[in-house]
Amino acid sequence: MTPLNFRRRPRAGFRLALLAGLALALAPAALPPQLQRAAPLLAGAQARQKQLRISAIPDQNPEKLNRLYGLVASELSRQLKVPVKYVPVTNYTAAVSAFRTGDLDLVWFGGLTGVQARLQKPGARVIAQRDIDASFHSVFIANTSARLKPLRNVKGLAELKGKRFTFGSESSTSGRLMPQHYLNQAGVKLRDFAGGAPGFSGSHDATIALVQSGAYQAGAVNEQVWKSNLRSGKADRRRVAVIWRTPGYPDYHWIAQPNLDQRFGKGFTSKLQKAFVGLRRSNPQQARILELFGAQKFIPAPVSQYAAIEKVGRQIGKIR
């Protein structure tokens, strides 16, 4: 019954498809200026000599990072009289690698990533830390439905066995390294969590949101980010609460490439340090920066304090 075998029209929509395809092929070519902005990571070596490229480990929501480091870039540029550009990176490891390969000049590292970066780039200079960083804290938070009571001491963390638990980034000091260190002290291994492994949410904001939603029953976050989430109302006390606060340890700090003086002129590194240490609450622009950093001021950071972090890093296997 040949009349009944309908064959499909082969050319239907071909022209449309061709047009779409052409548009597709030309799209990247049509937007070069935006592209450069969109691919800041990929910005080539062309401006390497003249520009100070700053970055930070992506520990919070990207839009907050953009706001904060945009301000930092313009403030540094104003004080130091050099073009400064904020280059976002997407994960902690990439920040360390890009620092080692010389693609980033000045990076806001965490305790662990800072040690990793200095080990990989001998001669790198620790520039400054916040007043809160010398004795920084993590908090263990839990969804209220998990019925976890506030713990009296580190041993209490054993309660977390069998719970769904998430860290922040794999390389986060406050979101992974130190919490895991204290979990070890309480005899909790990573495979003791529900599912045989903890989650890695990627950032502190994500950890809070995930624990609050119930996707994880508990998590470990940076105390400063936790407080700012409470203040902004993003964290809901009825659904998520702190169950334990860790003892203090040194954490975040600015690290600069060893060769900044050669590239930007003698004394540049110390000028950079002065610029940070000199940030004051009295100056409105600087006050906003300090506010976003959650700090009163920046202070010089003694390198020796990170020996403790390095030791814990080696114990846990994040430094080798």
């Binding site: 691919a39 990571l41 929501n61 994960n91 904001d205 994500a206």
Partner: peptide
Amino acid sequence: VFGLGGLGTDLRLTLQSLQ
């Protein structure tokens, strides 16, 4: 998604920040 540039980066970051 693993940070090597382009839209994947945005996708991961927006997912992780639950936006």
